[in-house]
Amino acid sequence: MTSRSSLLPGALEWRLVLAGTCLFSVGVIAGGLWNKKKASTARSPRVTVLPKLSPEEIASIPYPPDVLPGARDVDSPYGSIRVYEFGPEDGRKVLLVHGISTPAIALGAVAHALVDNGCRVMLFDLFGRGYSDNPEDLPHDIRLFTTQILLVLASSALSWTGKDSGKFSLIGYSLGGGIATTFASYFPNLIDSLILFAPAGILRPYHISRTSHIIYSEGLIPESLLQRLVRKRLRRPMATPLKKPVDKDNMVDATEAVAAEVNLEANSQAVLSKIRPHVTVEKTVIYQLDNYPSFVAAFMSSIRYGPVRYQHDRWRIVGEHLSRENEEKGTQKKVLVVLGANDPIIIQKEVEEDATEVLSGNVEFAVFDAGHEVPVTKGDQIVAQIMDFWQRTD
């Protein structure tokens, strides 16, 4: 017969398990009631600023909503997305992805030149830039960027991904280059050709300063304080843009990437919009800082989570796909990488070495006498290079 004492430990253990389970359940329910993270979407100046302005005032702002042809606003669960699509409907389809600080207008010169050469182009403002809303509760990582690209493609009245639509060419600038390459690694069968302007993605880590590591690390400093600090730092580099390339002993602050994109002296003569010639990337960035509070949060999140560094494995997938395709079809498909010889962020020699290795040699380089702003100031020359590239590699 089992003694009473032998039953006590088991009974006690069972009661403890039951009590623990009940407490855990209460915690889960409480967490669901009080700690559930809610979706939070910050509206762009399209909603917060434009309705307060007259048509004349809207036409004169640094980033007018009609800065490029074919503007539309695409509603999505992540917020509204500003898209521009223009050019002949039967032309070669080209999707362009801009950089970390400037909206789609930074690639305006390239887009217009492509259209002049018979292409159908589509550009869009990344979340938190220009006239696209910002899903503040989500990290700006490749998952969000990939979703945004697919939403943009699906918003077109033309088929960009359907069976009979043919493939499209993908162009990415700076952060957009990292986004474009990683996107292509997941959807290689959608992409006809990949072209990168001063691309992020395989930036060597020693170029990022210790200060940037601290500023863009979460949890060390209150986020509100960090955003105020970054907002000030984003303004400061534009007054003294970088002019010399960095090397292994010369690190760069992450916010100085804005100065490299803006490059006041070079960009002052760049024509980005055919109907709004007063528009410049410098004025557009300042406009965002003054009128789009969530822009700084999007900028910071893109540095923290975006495909800026350590994307070598995804680039290798692109290179391996091109090797297989070239072997099977007898083609000479390559990635075209456009660089600025004086770029202080994306160093020509380093990119040529690293991209050649990770892309299995399936890469061609075009170097221009410019800095990181190369597609802003060299639009016509770059498109001439692209047209020649397509003629040789299609």
Rank of each mutant, 00 (worst) to 15 (best):
L96S: 05
K232S: 14
A198C: 15
K283S: 14
A370C: 09
A198K: 03
P62R: 07
L158M: 11
P51Y: 09
P139S: 09
S40H: 13
A297K: 14
G306Y: 07
H321K: 10
N326Q: 09
C119F: 11
E357G: 00
S132M: 00
L16P: 00
N250W: 12
I317G: 01
V152R: 00
P205C: 03
D75M: 04
A106D: 11
A239Q: 12
E218W: 05
A180E: 02
I179A: 03
A154Q: 12
A104W: 01
D354T: 13
A30K: 06
L336V: 09
K329Q: 13
T284C: 10
Y310K: 14
G118A: 10
K38V: 11
A355T: 09
A341Q: 14
K36Y: 12
L50C: 06
V67Y: 10
Q148D: 04
Y63H: 13
I195V: 15
G27I: 10
V335A: 03
R82M: 01
E282H: 13
P344W: 05
E57K: 15
A384G: 10
A239M: 12
R92V: 10
A384N: 12
V262Y: 01
F127C: 00
E353L: 11
T21D: 02
L95V: 14
V271H: 09
A259V: 04
P88Q: 07
A113K: 13
Y84K: 07
F127D: 00
A200V: 09
T181G: 07
V337R: 07
R143Q: 11
H140L: 10
S3I: 09
D90K: 15
G130C: 02
V383F: 04
W315N: 07
Q227S: 10
S294M: 03
K378N: 11
V279A: 05
